[in-house]
Write a protein that binds this DNA or RNA. Structure first.
Lengths: 246, 246
DNA sequence: GGAATTGTTAAAATCCCGTGAAAAAGCCCT
DNA sequence: AGGGCTTTTTCACGGGATTTTAACAATTCC
């Protein structure tokens, strides 16, 4: 995994996908350096000296990540970022800024622009690569809303149905949303607070212990033996993790 | 800690740790200059006129930074840099090149080899100091959580899993947080008090000896031979240090 | 050899989670 | 609007896992 490459299974065999990174940088020395090191890591890199054509290209071939110099002639980095965030197909593509002044960094990371990290110039290649990989990892897309089959259970978000070992099991709305969230982020640990933030609707105040109750209800519905969960495990001191059984 | 100095509490009183900078430079005028200004800033400086012994020394007393002249008799700077990058214990130590030729080609070459910055001769003392500090500072900004592989052990913070020699090893929350902290700051010594401050949750007072207990538990889980730790070493009189095995 | 420091172990104290049940909030229907 | 239903949320207790302590053994350094 460390390579940053993604794989996808289609047509029954594996295709290795080289994630594309779009770089907007006018200084040819820097862009050469960036291209060199990112390509070394197995990424496909596209460099744009100005911000003119990036967006058009990006809409066609959606990149995995943007690396934007804050200041480039023409449309500058900030401008591009803003547009990216407002373009439906690109809104969730992560952005890393290259900044000269560290004072810009805070501003860039500030909420409104929605950058995901920054790298201060002069930067080292190792730093660049490390941050790019880290951001990509953080942004691993949740699986798109399509029916999922995990072990013996099937979750169909569009129908909001849960099928366990062939039998349709009724669920309440919150039960389903929580299970769906877990199933979409298999293998990760979530704290109760995180789950409340991302699964619950209103979230006015709700005790984290409510999560426990729902976990139990879900277990009763999907686990053959709710005492020894194979899917929805508790990670003591941290939260819960959903996993595919071996 | 913008100054580049680190402090740590040990032996009941405060010790100021002066980060060590290893300089490889054959011109005595320049090396004198470098030493003078860096020592003025509170760094411990060690000068090597040739590249012969640096690596051996560095492996014992791990420096915070290398300053390498690109061209020195014997093993030259580029060579040393390459070796450093391939030495497990040193791979993450930053490198700054000194070069006479200010040609861009040289600069880019240096950076492509994995250097972290580059200073063209003749340089001003202020520039030297500024770049050294900048690199050290950059280096301290922690990366967002991402899986780590150190020797034969793998740590995945998002899944909260530890894999040792291929096998998944269960950990408790505190064990994991401590190991994660160590792994994220490889090569640095931490006092028990520092660890309590930065890894423990509440820290309403907890005996420093608790750290010992956790170190032992971690060793039992990751070390092939817990009596002779290869990863998590004790630094008598100071604390513990986690390192990549040679 | 002796003082200081760290390793080890086991027991005590604490924290955390599962559980059942009941209160509160929604919801739908007339 | 009100009654009966479902869903959501809270609460408290008990058991068990984790954390912490403390006492003793082993090591290191002078």
């Amino acid at each position: 995994m460390g390579s940053g490459l993604g794989t996808c299974t289609a047509l029954g065999y594996n295709i290795v996908v080289k994630p594309a990174i779009f770089v907007v940088e006018d200084d040819p020395d820097i862009s050469r350096l960036v291209r060199h090191h990112l390509e070394n890591e197995g990424f496909t890199v596209r460099v744009y000296p100005t911000g003119a054509n990036v967006l058009a290209d990006a809409e066609r071939q959606r990149p995995a990540l943007f690396v934007l110099d804050i200041m480039v002639p023409g449309k500058d980095g900030l401008e591009i970022c803003r547009t990216v965030r407002q373009t439906p197909g690109l809104a969730s593509v992560p952005v890393i800024f290259l900044t000269a002044k560290s004072s810009e960094a805070d501003r860039v990371l500030g909420l409104e622009l929605g950058a995901d990290d920054y790298i201060a110039k002069p930067f080292s290649p190792r730093e660049l690569v490390a941050r790019v990989k880290a951001v990509l990892r953080r942004f691993e897309r949740p699986l798109p809303p399509s029916p999922m089959k995990i072990g013996e259970i099937e979750i169909d978000p569009s129908a909001m149905t849960l099928t366990v070992r062939g039998a349709l099991v009724p669920t309440t709305a919150t039960e389903f949303r929580l299970l769906d969230y877990f199933a979409r982020h298999r293998g990760r640990v979530f704290t109760r607070d995180h789950l409340l933030d991302s699964v619950w609707r209103d979230t006015a105040y709700v005790t984290p212990r409510s999560v426990d109750v729902y976990v139990r209800r879900i277990r009763e519905k999907i686990e053959p033996d709710p005492e020894n969960p194979r899917y929805l495990k508790t990670v003591r001191g941290a939260g819960y993790r959903f996993e595919s059984p071996k």
